[in-house]
């Protein structure tokens, strides 16, 4: 009995660590979001966020940038992952590595490289802020979209595709009614991998001379101004968005496991 007790105890340092450095900071954010600089309860940060046209505009710009980036990534990554997963090449894993290898190069260095090329092509890159931001974020986050799509397309049961075409479905029907629905979990997890960072990674915008704010830039500017309360409010808004996205994602992945259970 004493021995089992010993093994369990190993998780105590990590549990304490999680409570202190993961949970506590979140409660601190919550506290700061609803107090003013003097520590009194206040809803002014909340009201400030939802009545200020600047912050609402930023939220809107963030969403449009993130959604456009996510769709562009999906449109590029889906065919890529599909070809890679469906190909009968022996070394398709090596090929996949080529596509996700940039993931391991520091993103600021990659954006520096991209910026040089864009300057060469466009001349004055500050003339196309939105376009360049979409290109930059696509360049940065594409591997995170390809990887889950590849995984979900690879484990797709080939006999289902054969059955569908034996039953008279043409290629388009098979794709739309079998392949696409079965790859939805991959699509969803790829989309979340891109959507959230592209709402917050303001460094890509900064480096490509897009001076418009996104949600991340707001936190950055409140941080520079030592305004912890409004900064916490923005963090809280992001947390709520992340929470909702995670709930939606979990719903889809549950369905996925059920669907797979049904196939088995």
């Amino acid at each position: 009995m004493k021995l089992r007790f010993n093994r369990k105890q190993l998780c105590i340092p990590y549990a304490v660590f999680l409570v202190f450095f993961v949970l506590a900071p979140l409660f601190v954010i919550l506290y700061y979001a609803f107090t003013d600089g003097q520590g009194k309860i206040s809803f002014s940060n909340f009201a400030n966020f939802f009545t200020n046209t600047n912050t609402l505009g930023t939220l809107l710009y963030s969403f449009s940038l993130a959604i456009v980036t996510t769709l562009v990534c999906l449109v590029i990554a889906y065919p890529t992952a599909y070809i890679l997963a469906r190909s009968n090449l022996k070394k398709k894993y090596v090929l996949l590595l080529l596509f996700i290898l940039p993931m391991w190069i520091n993103f600021t260095l990659r954006i520096t490289a991209l910026k040089e090329i864009l300057s060469l092509l466009e001349g004055n890159i500050s003339a196309y802020p939105f376009l360049n931001s979409v290109i930059g974020m696509t360049y940065d986050f594409m591997p995170f979209m390809i990887l889950p799509l590849y995984t979900s397309l690879l484990k797709l049961d080939k006999s289902l595709l054969e059955a569908a075409s034996d039953l008279g479905g043409n290629k388009l029907t098979v794709f739309l009614r079998v392949t696409l629905p079965l790859s939805v979990p991959g699509i969803i997890s790829g989309m979340t991998m891109v959507l959230l960072p592209s709402m917050t990674n303001y460094v890509v915008l900064d480096m490509l001379y897009n001076s418009t704010y996104i949600m991340g830039s707001l936190i950055g500017s409140y941080f520079s101004a030592y305004d912890w309360n409004n900064g916490s409010m923005i963090s809280l808004v992001l947390l709520v968005i992340i929470f909702i996205v995670t709930l939606v994602t979990n719903r889809f992945s549950d369905k996925d496991s059920n669907a797979r259970g049904a196939v088995l």
């Binding site: 998780c11 450095f21 601190v28 954010i29 936190i219 950055g220 992001l238 947390l239 992340i242």
Partner: peptide
Amino acid sequence: AKTLINAANQIPVVNADIVTGFSVCILLIV
């Protein structure tokens, strides 16, 4: 205990880096 640790472990994974960084900064530095 396992479920709780797994859940807490998942927070920094899904959270945006910027929120993680900002919240750690407030707790430890501010």
